[in-house]
Design a protein around this nucleic acid. Structure first.
Length: 299
DNA sequence: AAAGGTAGCAACCGCTGGATT
DNA sequence: GAATCCAGCGGTTGCTACCTT
């Protein structure tokens, strides 16, 4: 028996392997993955081949394209609805795979965990505090330096982490308190390569609504952040109510065209200022304020 | 400029469920 | 009905590039 033939190759795919796989799919369609190896075309398992096809080679994938604001919203909304059913969620996101959605969510959870950890550690003793500051973008339309209250918060060194968390949370809470969002999602599984099935309607936030950010309710939440048990209310560390990014919503196209992929670095990371994450990591009960989604079976 | 930490991504692993024999 | 195969899914890990000090 030829030992080399039995050897299963793992790790990164070479261009030649991709080519073989693509040719196989062209010939036989995206199936019979195991036969690729049995025919001696590739020393990869059928599983590996399928994964490569689904995640990287399939047509119309948004490879290397950062999640748009709309996509983030969809993921957050559907994660609250379905839980970690990444494949199911991905069916609502044209060009995205379950792996994309999973990685996206996991990144956010990690980031959140770090934020929470930082919030529990005095900033003066936290060498990573600079990281947190970096992750608090300017509010769209409200720069910290332009708003006295926000500026005061930002300058409050003794409670910087909590202030940051409050900064992150409040706009969202007020947004949801003041707006009954209307979200309509349709899976695109019947037409996987078009975005036409997807319709999302989000409320536009007005200047008066922005003013609500600093209402008494916001101040109450700030006070709650001082409560050591505050975070327990929402559950474990991965409770999604807090994030490191703040974004007031602005009117945007329902879906960005693929050309909306922004400038990216070598590793494909977005190098521009990230305007995302208005919906970052909400507690699921926050969506109680929203008109409920129709049952997925009705979509 | 170097070091350490983090984010993002690609790929693998183990499990499950459906189809086939 | 049981056994086997295979596709699909979710969790996890490892690598690379980038950022900050």
């Amino acid at each position: 028996m030829d030992g080399k033939r039995e050897e299963i190759r793992k790790g990164p795919w070479k261009a030649e392997e991709d080519e073989v796989l693509i040719n196989h799919v062209k010939k036989y369609g995206p199936r019979d993955w195991s036969s690729i190896r049995s025919k001696g075309l590739l020393q990869r398992t059928g599983k590996s081949c399928r994964l490569r096809w689904v995640n990287k080679l399939r047509p119309n994938l948004k490879n290397g394209c950062k999640f748009s604001l709309e996509e983030e919203r969809i993921v957050i909304e559907l994660q609250a609805e379905f839980g970690n059913k990444w494949a199911r969620i991905a069916t609502y996101l044209p060009g995205r795979t379950d792996n994309d959605v999973k990685n996206f969510w996991s990144s956010r959870q990690k980031r959140l965990a770090r934020i929470l950890q930082n919030s529990a550690t005095p900033s003066s003793s936290n060498p990573k505090s600079h990281k947190i500051k970096k992750e608090i973008p300017e509010f769209q339309g409200i720069h910290p330096s332009e708003d006295p209250k926000l500026k005061a918060l930002m300058e409050e060194e003794s409670s910087s982490s909590k202030a940051q968390l409050a900064d992150m949370v409040n706009p969202k809470l007020h947004h949801f308190g003041a707006n009954h969002s209307h979200l309509q999602l349709t899976p695109y599984e019947n037409n996987p390569y078009t975005e036409s099935h997807l319709q999302i309607h989000f409320p536009q936030i007005s200047q008066p609504q922005q003013d609500l950010i600093f209402s008494p309710e916001s101040q109450e939440l700030l006070a709650r952040l001082e409560d050591p048990y505050f975070f327990d209310v929402f559950g474990p560390v991965d409770a999604p109510e807090l994030s490191n990014e703040v974004q007031l919503p602005v009117e945007q196209p329902l879906l960005k065209p693929e050309t909306s992929c922004r400038n990216r670095g070598k590793d494909g990371n977005d190098k521009s200022v990230n305007p995302d994450a208005f919906f970052d990591d909400f507690p699921t009960d926050m969506f109680d304020h929203i008109e409920p989604l129709p049952s997925p079976s009705d979509w």
